[in-house]
Write a protein that binds this DNA or RNA. Structure first.
Lengths: 243, 243
DNA sequence: TATGTTTATATGTATGTACATATATTTGCC
DNA sequence: GGCAAATATATGTACATACATATAAACATA
């Protein structure tokens, strides 16, 4: 891990500092609540001014990644997924940014005939196979979310991709498909037998259920996603401002 | 419109500047694309340093309200049209828009000492009573949501209001308090005994739980709201576009 | 006229400095 | 011991200053 700032680089110091901070706060000790070094010392260690360091800190604070408290210190904010953060739509990137290690418990890739809902959203017939991706993910202690995704054939996924990489990185870098609009529906449900088994809870336990419709820049459908979150493992935060 | 900064005030200068900027950019000429005065001049006019002015500007830029361009200037970002701002925050109006008749099953108004969470959000002590509003609402066939709201004393509610009227109409028309920002946290929960009784479900049944923090135009807290929704009775929809 | 060069302008980056203030800890008095 | 006062610590606020750089307009040259 690069822990130094290159004063000869043409990358602005505060951007280097920001990048550096994003890295160091992934360290488990910080994710668990340890305070960062204080600003004055840290600035000295990085050989930049406190003002410059604060430029970087401000950005992370604004994103909700860090919490500062006068007289106390600065630490990593408690995990919760925020809809407005930089890593738009990406579950694993967001978790990584907060220093939460993500474990993939299961990963299945199959080609299936879409059901009515999927075919309808994709505007294709139920006769044309689509790629289905199922993932069981969570923390080392146990899974807390079960995802099911369907992808529009137009995207061009083969099923041979490395789905351990962030999904939206694969789509953007390898397939030049950029997710641009998402419509989500969030509700509570009782866990059915199948989901209860996957998430290791009793059938009937409360589940946060999220349906997500994702569109590309031309507002064409690219992904249909279902997420089943174990209760209390996941909080959805929304910030909305009047006009 | 206040166009000056009060150096004797105990409100930090950058916050005053921020508030001031929020006001002046509402001027139609800026909304239509005119550039703001340049930073150096504006700072001079407000009698604050450029650094302090930039603190305020940064915040609005982060929020996406302003666009800065090196060598060019700063202007108001193009307005994003949000369809959901219409019936913003109002449960009854939203339900009515969907053609769902609403019945009020219970309505309790009490003055209580706030708990830690409420006092903390309102920035008051737990010794100062606040107005608590509890409502059990739903369709004619039965209740499906239980609301608990706390109001900041600043608002001036007496408890004698007619809470069968839409809440935000009461606040706006009678008390000139305009809700401007809301932060929400949505999660799934198992119904406790109390909530289960109210919503007429078995204890342990899944509940969609929503916590809502509401702020006025000056970003001062005005309402703390908890909502417990019977599963399958309520779907939360969100539409988000990249950038 | 067409095109490259300079210049004016506004934001971007970076530092050093000083004091204010919230919080927790330590000290000292009764 | 109990409680108030002092102190240590970390972030918060604010200023003056200097130079870098992107952009557009003015200017100069072939």
């Amino acid at each position: 891990m690069k822990l130094r700032i290159d004063h000869k680089s043409h990358v602005p110091l505060h951007l280097q500092a920001e990048e550096l901070l994003r890295n160091i706060i992934r360290d488990p000790q910080y994710a668990e609540g340890k305070f960062l070094p204080n600003e004055v010392d840290l600035a000295k260690e990085l050989a930049i001014s406190r003002t410059t360091l604060r430029q970087a800190l401000n950005k992370l604070v604004y994103e909700g990644l860090l919490i500062r408290k006068k007289g106390i210190g600065t630490k990593v904010a408690e995990a919760s997924v925020s809809s407005k953060s930089k890593n738009w739509l990406s579950f694993s990137q967001e978790m990584q940014a907060r220093g939460i290690p993500i474990k993939n418990f299961e990963l299945h890739v199959t080609w299936v005939y879409p059901d009515e809902a999927v075919a309808n959203f994709f505007e294709i017939t139920t006769q044309k196979k689509v790629l289905k991706l199922e993932r069981l993910r969570g923390r080392p202690e146990g899974p807390f979310v079960y995802f099911v995704s369907f992808f529009h054939p137009r995207v061009g996924l083969t099923g041979e991709e490395d789905f351990k990489r962030p999904l939206y990185e694969i789509l953007e870098k390898d397939y030049r498909v950029v997710a641009n609009l998402s419509k989500e529906e969030i509700s509570a449900k009782a866990a059915g037998k199948f989901i209860a088994g996957k998430l290791e809870v009793e059938p009937g336990s409360p589940i946060l259920f999220r349906k997500r419709y994702v569109y590309d820049q031309g507002d064409r459908p690219i992904e249909y996603n279902l997420g089943y979150y174990k209760a209390d493992s996941f909080v959805y935060t929304i910030e909305s401002r009047r006009e």
